[in-house]
Simulated assay, not measured.
Amino acid sequence: MAFLGLRKWPTPIARPLWPFAVAGGITMYLVYSAQSAGVRSAEWRKDPRNPYAAQIASESLH
Results as ranks from 00 to 15, higher is better:
Met1Trp: 04
Met1Asp: 01
Met1Thr: 02
Ala2Thr: 13
Ala2Asp: 11
Ala2Val: 11
Ala2Gln: 15
Phe3Lys: 13
Phe3Leu: 15
Leu4Val: 01
Gly5Lys: 02
Leu6Lys: 07
Leu6Ile: 05
Arg7Cys: 02
Trp9Asn: 10
Trp9Lys: 12
Pro10Glu: 10
Thr11Cys: 00
Thr11Met: 06
Pro12Ile: 00
Ala14His: 01
Arg15Pro: 03
Arg15Asn: 09
Pro16Ala: 07
Leu17Gln: 09
Leu17His: 06
Trp18Ala: 11
Trp18Leu: 12
Trp18Pro: 02
Pro19Tyr: 05
Phe20His: 12
Ala21Thr: 04
Ala21His: 04
Val22Trp: 11
Ala23Thr: 08
Gly24Ile: 05
Gly25Phe: 08
Ile26Trp: 08
Ile26Gln: 06
Thr27Glu: 04
Tyr29Arg: 12
Leu30Tyr: 09
Val31Asn: 00
Val31Trp: 06
Tyr32Thr: 12
Tyr32Ser: 15
Ala34Arg: 08
Ser36Gly: 08
Ala37Lys: 13
Val39Pro: 01
Trp44Arg: 10
Trp44Pro: 01
Arg45Ala: 13
Lys46Val: 07
Pro48Arg: 00
Pro48Gln: 05
Pro48Lys: 04
Pro51Met: 05
Pro51Cys: 01
Tyr52Gln: 10
Ala54His: 02
Ala54Leu: 07
Gln55Arg: 07
Gln55Ile: 04
Gln55Ala: 13
Gln55Thr: 04
Ser58Val: 03
Ser60His: 09
Leu61Glu: 15
Leu61Trp: 10
His62Cys: 11
